[in-house]
Amino acid sequence: MDLQILLLLGQDGVTNGAIYALLALALVLVFAVTRVIFIPQGEFVAYGALTLAALQAGKVPGTVWLLLALGTTVALLDGVRLLREGRFRKLPPLLIFNVGIPLLCAGGLFVVPPTQLPLWAQVAVSMLLVVPLGPMIYRVAYQPLASASVLVLLIVSVAVHLALIGLGLLFFGAEGSRTPAFTEISFELAGAPLQGQTILVIVASALLIIGLYFFFERTLYGKALRATAMNRTGARLMGIPPALAGQLCFTLAAAIGAFSGILIAPITTIYYDSGFLIGLKGFVGAIIGGLASYPVAALGAALVGLLESYSSFYASAFKEVIVFTLIIPVLLWRSLTTKHVEEEE
């Protein structure tokens, strides 16, 4: 093993680590605010990547139909409640967000062939199609059970995950897709080629992480989310509605997932079910951070990426075994060093 190989593997590990770190952050965020272990996080990666690929292939992605169906369900659920309570003024925004915008997207796709759009517009449309799924799924699947135990929420997560995988197969087919690279530039770094796409992934992830930091530190919504994560009842007493916090953090999680998917789509082939494993590796990172600490989770995820990369060189057949075995010493260490706190019921 010479320096060049060391560098190439490191570069590969950091790229994947950056994606895992984004997902780990989303998982920590969702868990902290809603106590949901968000297994379907990975599905947003696959949906984001495959929606973009479908747009580039000139097809109408199946996510449009899911968005319309979920949007209508949410509008019906909330609409009936609003009508009963006589809060008519809240109706138009509800309808616009859940039915109007999805309809506009769907209509737009049929009017303007997506292949004619520039790349950034395709990315924007894909995000627009996938991200609203996050809050909608929260409204339909989690919000009615918001105060249930972690275990019940976990079971719901498994159900949502399986439903999304099945729909993914229906929408995108069994075969994978890969999108063209955002940039063809490549550099030389200490004799090792460095792809522009790789740099893009790392820079974009870093920017997103910084953006999230400022969102939580400087904005009212960010602070509301942090308050809910720290003390749910206290935040509620201070006038932060738990449903809003939940929908907000699911929107963020969906956006992070879809964005990660769009970032890695040019580097690797994404399948309808690829998201799960990517999400699981992010989850290992999140576990290292104890599902609570953002910086430790991000570092843990980067460690997972590097470990994966180097183990694929030394013992490719045992790569996954090595990565997932990492969780055992981490759990041991955590259970020995932290005091066990009974979950509040």
């Binding site: 190989i5 190439l8 593997l9 590969d12 790229t15 994947n16 890695i264 580097i267 690797t268 399948y271 079910d273 690829s274 799960f276 494993l277 990517i278 990369s309 180097y310 183990s311 694929s312 060189f313 030394y314 490719s316 057949a317 790569k319 996954e320």
Partner: peptide
């Protein structure tokens, strides 16, 4: 003699070993 998984997103390690 290298192995990779159907769901892998990268095979850089294996590729480098083969090239070597």
């Amino acid at each position: 003699n290298e192995r990779f998984n159907r769901t892998d997103t990268t095979v850089t390690g294996q590729t480098l070993k083969i090239l070597a």
